[in-house]
Simulated scan of single mutants.
Amino acid sequence: MTATNTPTRSTGAERRNTIRTLLGTGAGNAVEWYDWAIYATFSTYLSAQLFSHEDPTSAFLATLAIFAVGFVARPFGGFLFGWIGDRVGRTTSMTLCVALASLGSLAIGLAPSFDQWGAWSSLLLLVARLVQGLAHGGETPNAQAYLSEMAPAEKRGLWASLIYVSGTTGTVIGILLGAILTVTLSTDQMNSFGWRIPFIVGAVLGVVALIQRLQMRESKAFEINKAETAAITFEKKSLFSEFMENRRSALQIIGLTVGFTVVYYVWSVSTPAYAINVLGMSPSDALWPASSPTLPSSR
Protein backbone atom coordinates (compact mmCIF):
# COMPACT_ATOMS: atom_id res chain seq x y z
CA MET A 1 0.00 0.00 0.00
CA THR A 2 1.39 3.44 -0.95
CA ALA A 3 2.23 5.76 1.92
CA THR A 4 -0.19 8.62 2.18
CA ASN A 5 2.51 11.27 2.59
CA THR A 6 4.40 10.40 -0.61
CA PRO A 7 2.17 12.40 -2.96
CA THR A 8 2.38 15.37 -0.60
CA ARG A 9 6.16 15.37 -0.65
CA SER A 10 6.16 15.00 -4.43
CA THR A 11 3.66 17.81 -4.85
CA GLY A 12 5.66 20.10 -2.56
CA ALA A 13 8.89 19.37 -4.41
CA GLU A 14 7.25 19.94 -7.77
CA ARG A 15 5.75 23.21 -6.57
CA ARG A 16 9.15 24.46 -5.41
CA ASN A 17 10.72 23.39 -8.68
CA THR A 18 7.97 25.20 -10.63
CA ILE A 19 8.55 28.43 -8.71
CA ARG A 20 12.31 28.10 -9.20
CA THR A 21 11.84 27.50 -12.93
CA LEU A 22 9.49 30.44 -13.51
CA LEU A 23 11.43 32.88 -11.33
CA GLY A 24 14.83 31.91 -12.68
CA THR A 25 13.75 32.04 -16.32
CA GLY A 26 11.56 35.13 -15.98
CA ALA A 27 14.00 37.16 -13.89
CA GLY A 28 16.93 36.32 -16.13
CA ASN A 29 14.98 37.16 -19.26
CA ALA A 30 13.80 40.47 -17.76
CA VAL A 31 17.38 41.41 -16.89
CA GLU A 32 18.51 40.52 -20.42
CA TRP A 33 15.92 42.81 -22.00
CA TYR A 34 16.56 45.52 -19.42
CA ASP A 35 20.23 45.47 -20.44
CA TRP A 36 19.24 45.57 -24.09
CA ALA A 37 16.77 48.45 -23.72
CA ILE A 38 18.81 50.86 -21.61
CA TYR A 39 21.36 51.26 -24.38
CA ALA A 40 18.70 52.81 -26.59
CA THR A 41 17.22 54.78 -23.70
CA PHE A 42 20.55 56.41 -22.89
CA SER A 43 21.91 56.60 -26.43
CA THR A 44 21.99 60.41 -26.25
CA TYR A 45 24.34 60.30 -23.26
CA LEU A 46 26.44 57.50 -24.73
CA SER A 47 27.05 59.51 -27.89
CA ALA A 48 28.06 62.57 -25.84
CA GLN A 49 30.37 60.70 -23.47
CA LEU A 50 31.96 57.93 -25.52
CA PHE A 51 32.39 59.61 -28.91
CA SER A 52 34.11 62.70 -30.25
CA HIS A 53 32.45 66.03 -29.42
CA GLU A 54 33.39 67.62 -32.75
CA ASP A 55 30.28 66.41 -34.59
CA PRO A 56 27.37 65.52 -32.23
CA THR A 57 25.18 64.30 -35.10
CA SER A 58 27.81 61.86 -36.34
CA ALA A 59 28.45 60.73 -32.77
CA PHE A 60 24.76 59.98 -32.25
CA LEU A 61 24.52 58.10 -35.57
CA ALA A 62 27.59 56.08 -34.60
CA THR A 63 25.90 55.20 -31.30
CA LEU A 64 22.82 53.92 -33.15
CA ALA A 65 25.06 52.03 -35.58
CA ILE A 66 26.59 50.16 -32.65
CA PHE A 67 23.06 49.43 -31.45
CA ALA A 68 22.47 47.84 -34.86
CA VAL A 69 25.70 45.84 -34.54
CA GLY A 70 24.11 44.06 -31.60
CA PHE A 71 21.41 42.77 -33.94
CA VAL A 72 24.05 41.46 -36.33
CA ALA A 73 25.58 39.46 -33.48
CA ARG A 74 22.27 37.95 -32.36
CA PRO A 75 22.00 35.19 -35.02
CA PHE A 76 25.53 34.06 -34.19
CA GLY A 77 24.56 34.00 -30.54
CA GLY A 78 21.55 31.88 -31.44
CA PHE A 79 23.78 29.36 -33.20
CA LEU A 80 26.43 29.32 -30.46
CA PHE A 81 24.20 29.16 -27.41
CA GLY A 82 21.66 26.98 -29.20
CA TRP A 83 24.45 24.47 -29.76
CA ILE A 84 25.47 24.72 -26.10
CA GLY A 85 21.85 24.33 -25.03
CA ASP A 86 21.37 21.20 -27.14
CA ARG A 87 24.70 19.59 -26.23
CA VAL A 88 25.42 20.70 -22.66
CA GLY A 89 22.11 21.90 -21.26
CA ARG A 90 19.51 24.66 -21.40
CA THR A 91 20.29 25.97 -17.91
CA THR A 92 24.02 26.15 -18.65
CA SER A 93 23.38 28.08 -21.85
CA MET A 94 20.90 30.48 -20.21
CA THR A 95 23.28 31.08 -17.29
CA LEU A 96 26.07 32.00 -19.69
CA CYS A 97 23.73 34.32 -21.59
CA VAL A 98 22.65 36.35 -18.58
CA ALA A 99 26.25 36.52 -17.33
CA LEU A 100 27.51 37.90 -20.64
CA ALA A 101 24.65 40.40 -20.96
CA SER A 102 25.36 41.74 -17.46
CA LEU A 103 29.10 41.82 -18.14
CA GLY A 104 28.39 43.98 -21.19
CA SER A 105 26.32 46.37 -19.08
CA LEU A 106 29.06 46.60 -16.47
CA ALA A 107 31.64 47.40 -19.16
CA ILE A 108 29.46 50.21 -20.53
CA GLY A 109 28.67 51.57 -17.06
CA LEU A 110 32.36 51.75 -16.13
CA ALA A 111 33.69 52.80 -19.55
CA PRO A 112 36.05 55.81 -19.47
CA SER A 113 34.84 58.83 -21.40
CA PHE A 114 36.12 59.85 -24.83
CA ASP A 115 38.10 62.65 -23.17
CA GLN A 116 39.97 60.02 -21.13
CA TRP A 117 40.48 57.18 -23.59
CA GLY A 118 39.73 58.67 -26.96
CA ALA A 119 38.60 56.19 -29.63
CA TRP A 120 39.26 53.29 -27.25
CA SER A 121 36.09 54.27 -25.38
CA SER A 122 34.07 53.88 -28.58
CA LEU A 123 35.75 50.54 -29.23
CA LEU A 124 34.92 49.32 -25.74
CA LEU A 125 31.28 50.24 -26.34
CA LEU A 126 31.33 48.26 -29.60
CA VAL A 127 32.83 45.16 -27.95
CA ALA A 128 30.35 45.34 -25.05
CA ARG A 129 27.46 45.57 -27.48
CA LEU A 130 28.73 42.62 -29.49
CA VAL A 131 28.88 40.56 -26.30
CA GLN A 132 25.33 41.57 -25.41
CA GLY A 133 24.15 40.77 -28.93
CA LEU A 134 25.57 37.25 -28.66
CA ALA A 135 23.93 36.80 -25.27
CA HIS A 136 20.52 38.02 -26.44
CA GLY A 137 20.67 35.83 -29.51
CA GLY A 138 21.01 32.79 -27.29
CA GLU A 139 18.61 33.80 -24.51
CA THR A 140 15.20 33.71 -26.17
CA PRO A 141 15.37 30.35 -28.01
CA ASN A 142 16.92 28.58 -25.02
CA ALA A 143 14.46 30.09 -22.55
CA GLN A 144 11.47 29.24 -24.73
CA ALA A 145 12.68 25.68 -25.27
CA TYR A 146 13.37 25.26 -21.55
CA LEU A 147 9.96 26.53 -20.45
CA SER A 148 8.19 24.38 -23.05
CA GLU A 149 10.06 21.32 -21.81
CA MET A 150 9.44 22.06 -18.14
CA ALA A 151 5.76 22.99 -18.48
CA PRO A 152 2.89 20.53 -18.05
CA ALA A 153 1.44 19.65 -21.46
CA GLU A 154 -1.79 21.58 -20.81
CA LYS A 155 0.13 24.76 -19.78
CA ARG A 156 2.91 24.77 -22.35
CA GLY A 157 1.63 27.83 -24.21
CA LEU A 158 1.01 29.73 -20.97
CA TRP A 159 4.48 29.06 -19.62
CA ALA A 160 6.17 29.95 -22.91
CA SER A 161 4.37 33.32 -22.93
CA LEU A 162 6.38 34.25 -19.84
CA ILE A 163 9.25 35.15 -22.17
CA TYR A 164 7.29 38.04 -23.69
CA VAL A 165 5.82 39.19 -20.39
CA SER A 166 9.15 39.25 -18.56
CA GLY A 167 10.99 40.70 -21.56
CA THR A 168 8.54 43.58 -21.93
CA THR A 169 8.66 44.15 -18.16
CA GLY A 170 12.44 44.46 -18.24
CA THR A 171 12.27 46.90 -21.14
CA VAL A 172 9.65 49.10 -19.45
CA ILE A 173 11.65 49.14 -16.21
CA GLY A 174 14.73 50.32 -18.11
CA ILE A 175 12.87 53.17 -19.83
CA LEU A 176 11.05 54.08 -16.59
CA LEU A 177 14.34 54.27 -14.71
CA GLY A 178 15.64 56.61 -17.39
CA ALA A 179 12.61 58.86 -16.99
CA ILE A 180 13.01 58.93 -13.20
CA LEU A 181 16.73 59.74 -13.37
CA THR A 182 16.23 62.59 -15.82
CA VAL A 183 13.68 64.12 -13.45
CA THR A 184 15.62 63.69 -10.19
CA LEU A 185 19.11 64.55 -11.49
CA SER A 186 20.28 67.73 -13.17
CA THR A 187 21.60 67.80 -16.73
CA ASP A 188 25.18 68.08 -15.47
CA GLN A 189 24.69 65.16 -13.09
CA MET A 190 23.21 63.00 -15.86
CA ASN A 191 26.13 63.80 -18.14
CA SER A 192 28.63 63.23 -15.35
CA PHE A 193 27.49 60.00 -13.69
CA GLY A 194 23.71 59.59 -13.93
CA TRP A 195 23.79 57.79 -17.29
CA ARG A 196 26.06 55.13 -15.77
CA ILE A 197 23.64 54.16 -12.99
CA PRO A 198 21.23 51.99 -15.07
CA PHE A 199 24.10 49.98 -16.56
CA ILE A 200 25.62 49.27 -13.15
CA VAL A 201 22.16 48.40 -11.80
CA GLY A 202 21.82 45.97 -14.71
CA ALA A 203 25.08 44.28 -13.74
CA VAL A 204 23.91 43.90 -10.13
CA LEU A 205 20.54 42.50 -11.20
CA GLY A 206 22.42 40.12 -13.47
CA VAL A 207 24.23 38.65 -10.46
CA VAL A 208 20.87 38.01 -8.78
CA ALA A 209 19.49 36.35 -11.92
CA LEU A 210 22.70 34.35 -12.27
CA ILE A 211 22.31 32.92 -8.77
CA GLN A 212 18.71 31.96 -9.52
CA ARG A 213 19.65 30.22 -12.74
CA LEU A 214 22.42 28.23 -11.09
CA GLN A 215 19.70 26.64 -8.93
CA MET A 216 17.57 25.52 -11.89
CA ARG A 217 17.63 21.91 -13.03
CA GLU A 218 17.47 20.49 -16.52
CA SER A 219 14.17 19.24 -17.88
CA LYS A 220 13.42 15.54 -18.09
CA ALA A 221 12.68 15.98 -21.80
CA PHE A 222 16.20 17.31 -22.38
CA GLU A 223 17.81 14.46 -20.49
CA ILE A 224 15.78 11.88 -22.44
CA ASN A 225 16.48 13.54 -25.79
CA LYS A 226 20.18 13.80 -24.99
CA ALA A 227 20.37 10.09 -24.20
CA GLU A 228 18.43 9.15 -27.33
CA THR A 229 20.47 11.46 -29.55
CA ALA A 230 23.72 9.93 -28.32
CA ALA A 231 22.55 6.54 -29.61
CA ILE A 232 21.55 7.80 -33.08
CA THR A 233 23.79 8.68 -36.00
CA PHE A 234 22.44 11.64 -37.96
CA GLU A 235 23.12 12.64 -41.52
CA LYS A 236 24.98 15.95 -41.47
CA LYS A 237 23.29 18.75 -43.40
CA SER A 238 24.29 22.33 -44.04
CA LEU A 239 22.33 25.22 -42.60
CA PHE A 240 21.31 26.33 -46.09
CA SER A 241 19.93 22.91 -47.02
CA GLU A 242 18.00 22.76 -43.75
CA PHE A 243 16.53 26.19 -44.47
CA MET A 244 15.53 25.27 -48.00
CA GLU A 245 13.80 22.11 -46.79
CA ASN A 246 11.80 24.14 -44.26
CA ARG A 247 11.67 27.46 -46.13
CA ARG A 248 7.88 27.73 -46.06
CA SER A 249 7.67 27.43 -42.28
CA ALA A 250 10.72 29.67 -41.78
CA LEU A 251 9.32 32.45 -43.98
CA GLN A 252 5.94 32.23 -42.26
CA ILE A 253 7.56 32.71 -38.84
CA ILE A 254 9.68 35.61 -40.11
CA GLY A 255 6.63 37.25 -41.66
CA LEU A 256 4.58 36.87 -38.48
CA THR A 257 7.21 38.46 -36.25
CA VAL A 258 8.77 41.18 -38.41
CA GLY A 259 5.80 43.56 -38.19
CA PHE A 260 5.56 43.65 -34.39
CA THR A 261 9.35 43.85 -34.15
CA VAL A 262 9.56 46.92 -36.39
CA VAL A 263 6.71 48.65 -34.53
CA TYR A 264 8.33 47.87 -31.17
CA TYR A 265 11.72 49.34 -32.06
CA VAL A 266 10.25 52.38 -33.77
CA TRP A 267 8.40 53.16 -30.53
CA SER A 268 11.03 52.23 -27.95
CA VAL A 269 14.17 53.36 -29.80
CA SER A 270 13.55 55.72 -32.69
CA THR A 271 10.77 57.85 -31.20
CA PRO A 272 12.47 58.93 -27.92
CA ALA A 273 15.80 59.44 -29.70
CA TYR A 274 14.15 61.50 -32.45
CA ALA A 275 12.24 63.59 -29.92
CA ILE A 276 15.38 64.38 -27.90
CA ASN A 277 17.88 64.97 -30.70
CA VAL A 278 15.74 66.40 -33.50
CA LEU A 279 12.72 67.99 -31.82
CA GLY A 280 14.73 69.22 -28.85
CA MET A 281 12.46 67.71 -26.18
CA SER A 282 13.85 67.17 -22.71
CA PRO A 283 14.84 63.54 -21.98
CA SER A 284 12.20 63.21 -19.26
CA ASP A 285 9.39 64.42 -21.55
CA ALA A 286 10.48 61.98 -24.24
CA LEU A 287 10.99 58.97 -21.95
CA TRP A 288 7.82 59.11 -19.84
CA PRO A 289 5.49 58.24 -22.78
CA ALA A 290 7.89 55.54 -23.95
CA SER A 291 7.82 53.88 -20.52
CA SER A 292 4.16 52.90 -21.00
CA PRO A 293 3.61 49.17 -21.68
CA THR A 294 4.42 48.20 -25.25
CA LEU A 295 3.07 45.53 -27.52
CA PRO A 296 4.72 42.14 -27.01
CA SER A 297 6.87 40.94 -29.88
CA SER A 298 9.71 38.57 -30.64
CA ARG A 299 12.15 41.50 -30.50
Rank of each mutant, 00 (worst) to 15 (best):
T11Y: 12
R196G: 06
I38Y: 00
P289Q: 13
G259R: 10
A179W: 07
A3K: 10
W36F: 12
S284W: 13
T25A: 15
A111K: 03
T8G: 05
S249K: 14
S292G: 12
T18E: 14
L100V: 08
K220P: 06
A290H: 09
M244R: 15
L147R: 05
G167R: 00
S47F: 01
V204P: 02
L100W: 01
D86S: 10
A143R: 00
N142D: 03
R247C: 08
I232H: 14
P152V: 11
G138D: 02
Q144W: 02
F240R: 10
A65H: 08
V201G: 00
V204H: 03
A128D: 04
L22V: 15
P7A: 09
A73Q: 05
K155W: 12
K220F: 09
S161G: 07
T169Y: 08
E14V: 06
S121H: 07
L46R: 01
R129I: 04
G255C: 11
A65R: 08
L130A: 06
S268A: 15
N277Y: 06
I108C: 04
Q252N: 11
P289T: 12
A30D: 01
M244V: 12
F260T: 14
G280K: 13
G138H: 01
T11W: 11
I253V: 15
L177P: 00
G118D: 13
T11D: 15
L205G: 00
A48W: 02
L126V: 14
R20K: 13
F81C: 06
S297Y: 05
H53S: 10
I84K: 02
R156A: 12
A227L: 13
L130Q: 04
S58V: 09
G78K: 06
R217N: 11
W120A: 15
S122G: 15
L23Y: 06
A13Q: 14
L23W: 09
A135F: 01
S291G: 10
A250V: 15
G104Q: 03
S148I: 10
S249V: 14
G77T: 04
M216F: 04
P198H: 05
E14R: 15
L61D: 03
G133I: 03
A37G: 00
E235Q: 12
I108R: 03
K236R: 13
P293W: 11
S192V: 03
A179V: 08
Q189P: 04
S161Y: 08
A3S: 12
L176R: 04
S192K: 07
A143D: 00
A209P: 00
F71A: 08
M1Y: 09
A62W: 05
I173A: 10
G194F: 05
R248M: 12
S219R: 06
Y45V: 02
N29E: 00
M150Q: 15
L50Y: 07
A13M: 14
A128E: 03
A286L: 12
A13C: 06
T21E: 06
R247I: 11
A221W: 08
P7N: 09
S284G: 11
S282Y: 10
S93E: 04
F79A: 14
P141L: 04
A27W: 05
E223G: 05
E14N: 15
L214H: 04
D86C: 07
Y265S: 07
T92K: 10
F199W: 04
Y34H: 01
T257S: 13
E235I: 06
S122W: 08
V263W: 09
D35W: 01
R248W: 14
